[in-house]
Amino acid sequence: MIDALDIDLAPVVAEQPFPVLFATVSGAHLYGFPSRDSDVDLRGVHLLPAADLVGLREPEETRSGMWDRDGVEMDLVTHDLRKFVRLMLRRNGYVLEQLLSPLAVHTTDAHRELAALAPGVLTGHHAHHYRGFANTQWRLFEKTGELKPLLYTFRVLLTGIHLMHSAEVQPHLPTLLGEVDAAPDYLPELIAAKAEREHGDAGVDHARVRADVERLHGVLDEARAASALPDAPTACDALHDFVVRTRLES
């Protein structure tokens, strides 16, 4: 395992053809269950010139690259600001987790301003995002029996439940265990097992975890029904103004 905050991204950022507004650590390090051999997933936003968006050529809105540091594989994926904000407005919890990740390895004033606007995109419909993510990971677990997709299943369900209750995006599973009463009591053991290996059989009672996953889906339904979150984003105009101003000032 590595200290995700100890990543010197300056050379990588300097090599990018466009300004990078932020890059944060996502994936297992953000979720609180990295393995000894986990890759480091870096996600962020770059800023295309205005000319690239008003001409006839299709802009490259998503860029990616991979490199190795001391035997640890890292990858950086960034979206252009406009694309990223559009994803934010589509009840996409995944990009909000990237934006709000406390594991920032490159940040700017624009990053902080965008993060401050994030509460205005939260809606009750984000429960559907986390339900869909959980279903995908559960199907993978049923197919492989591996620990990683099982932890992802529980993580996203608990993130969704916590979001409906608190209007806070919290992707860190160990923290969620203390925030969501419905969390199964065996999850700390699974987190500890995941630290030892990235892949491998979960070694769990499938009937028991299936019952707990189904129960958490019910808890998410109840939390969604009781949530005070709005049905639609409230920050659309502010985000539009932010994208235009940031682009023109670059």
Score class of each variant (00 low, 15 high):
Ala104Ser: 15
Phe84Pro: 02
Pro188Ala: 05
His128Glu: 15
His125Gly: 15
Val12Ser: 06
Arg139Val: 00
Leu140Lys: 15
Arg197Ile: 03
Asp237Pro: 02
Asp37Val: 12
Leu56Met: 15
Val77Gln: 09
Asp75Pro: 12
Glu97Met: 06
Asp75Thr: 12
Pro34Arg: 04
Glu58Lys: 14
Asn92Ile: 03
Phe242Asp: 04
Arg131Ser: 07
Ser64Met: 01
Arg155Cys: 03
His162Met: 03
Ser227Asn: 05
Met66Gln: 03
Leu30Cys: 07
Val204Ile: 10
Leu103Arg: 00
His125Ala: 15
Gly93Ile: 10
Gly218Asn: 07
Ala238Asn: 04
Glu222Asn: 04
Asp212Thr: 11
Pro230Leu: 05
Leu5His: 13
Leu5Tyr: 01
Gln170Thr: 14
Asp201His: 00
Pro11Gly: 03
Asn92Arg: 08
Trp138Asp: 09
Arg57Phe: 08
Gly145Pro: 01
Trp138Leu: 14
Arg90Ser: 14
Met74Thr: 00
Ala10Arg: 12
Asp37Phe: 10
Ser250Asp: 06
Val85Gln: 06
Gly132Glu: 11
Leu163Asp: 04
Pro233Ala: 10
Ala110Trp: 12
Ala115Ile: 01
Leu177Ile: 13
Lys194Arg: 15
Ser166Gly: 03
Ala226Lys: 11
Leu117Asp: 11
Ala116Val: 08
Gln16Pro: 00
Ala51His: 05
Thr153Pro: 13
Leu87Gly: 12
His199Arg: 10
Asp75Arg: 01
Glu198His: 08
Gly120Gln: 09
Ile2Tyr: 00
Gly27Tyr: 01
His79Lys: 07
Trp67Gly: 04
Asp241Leu: 13
Val209Lys: 06
Asp109Gly: 10
Leu81Ala: 07
Leu47Ser: 02
Val180Leu: 13
Leu100Ile: 05
Asp212Gln: 15
Ala232Ile: 10
Asp212Cys: 13
Val20Asn: 09
Glu15Met: 14
Ala226Glu: 09
Thr24Ala: 11
Ile191Asn: 09
Ser35Glu: 00
Asp109Gln: 09
Val54Lys: 04
Pro174Ser: 05
Pro171Ser: 09
Ala50Asp: 05
Glu198Lys: 12
Asp221Ala: 15
Phe18Tyr: 15
Ser250Glu: 09
His162Trp: 08
Glu196Gln: 14
Gln16Gly: 02
Ser101Cys: 08
Pro184His: 06
Phe154Gly: 04
Leu81Asp: 02
Asp70Val: 02
Val25Pro: 00
Tyr130Thr: 06
Ala50Glu: 12
Glu113Tyr: 04
Leu114Phe: 06
Val121Asn: 11
Ile191His: 08
Ile2Cys: 05
Thr159Gln: 07
Asp201Lys: 11
Arg208Cys: 00
Ala110Asp: 15
Lys143Tyr: 11
Pro188Gln: 08
Ala223Pro: 04
Met88His: 05
Ala182Asn: 02
Val20Thr: 02
Leu81Pro: 12
Ile7Ser: 01
Leu176Asp: 14
Val85Lys: 02
Pro59Arg: 11
Leu9Ala: 11
Pro19Trp: 00
His29Cys: 03
Arg197Glu: 09
Asp181Gly: 10
Leu173Met: 09
Thr246Ile: 08
Val95Pro: 01
Asp70Cys: 01
Gly32Cys: 11
Arg69Leu: 13
Leu173Gln: 05
Val13Phe: 01
Met1Thr: 03
Leu99Val: 11
Val12Met: 05
Arg63Trp: 08
Leu96Thr: 03
